[in-house]
Design a protein around this nucleic acid. Structure first.
Lengths: 114, 114
DNA sequence: AAATACTATGTCCGTAACGGATATAATGTC
DNA sequence: GACATTATATCCGTTACGGACATAGTATTT
């Protein structure tokens, strides 16, 4: 038994990038947009349509929630929910298995990480 | 020239699973379907609609090609193209960066891979 | 102080992917 | 001979994606 399939379908790149960005702490949309292009967050371009549309869906799915922080009038801060953190963790485990397989097949360097 | 940035946007889970499955060698659709549910290939469910629709798109995009192997009348074998291998490798590098970040944030175990 | 760039969020909407349902047929099994 | 499995294929509704556009406040530049 153990490792039961978490019934969580794979996350889209946009959802994944946002979750990973928020794993560092609460952020506002624009900050996530800036994060997303960095390689460590997936290196993807998050246009406003994708960003805010995805945030709405993630709010609906309870992956993120507004933190209520009122740093700046124009910023809306978001944070991970427990569900969101769980989804991110599950996805990380999933991706790690695939990356390990990639390493095994010689697609990427062995032993340069950690 | 050599490894130019392939401007390849992130791959969908289905495309990724198929490429990774084919990285082991030529396979037919049904075999990929079986592979995909295994954790090392991403652990996703590939229904026939997704599978064959995705293969068509990948053929169109020159990520895979038919190998012509006539093992069994009913099977159609596919293999990676150079473009497909490149896309898979780029995606692996991309995902590895994200997984490394996940490790850094304590989302997954440190040092259990390789 | 006017102009410009950047920050920050938001909506619109066409294109494309996803994926379950269904169909077909051959082979293997009981 | 009936049923499950292998293997491929198409249909089609739902959803996500993502560029373009809109709005407005702030910061910078000249």
């Amino acid at each position: 038994m153990a490792t039961e399939q978490p019934a969580t379908p794979p996350l889209s790149p946009a959802v994944f990038a946002i979750l990973l960005s928020l794993a560092e702490g609460e952020k506002h949309g624009y900050a996530m947009m800036k994060d997303a292009v960095k390689p460590e967050f997936g290196g993807i371009t998050l246009g406003p349509g994708t960003l805010y549309g995805t945030i709405d869906r993630m709010m609906r799915d309870q992956l993120v929630e507004e933190s209520g922080k009122t740093d700046n009038e124009r910023r809306r801060y978001y944070r991970l929910t427990e569900l969101g953190l769980g989804a991110l963790t599950a996805e990380m485990v999933r991706l790690n298995a695939a990356v390990t397989q990639g390493r095994k097949l010689g697609l990427i360097e062995t032993g340069g990480e950690v």
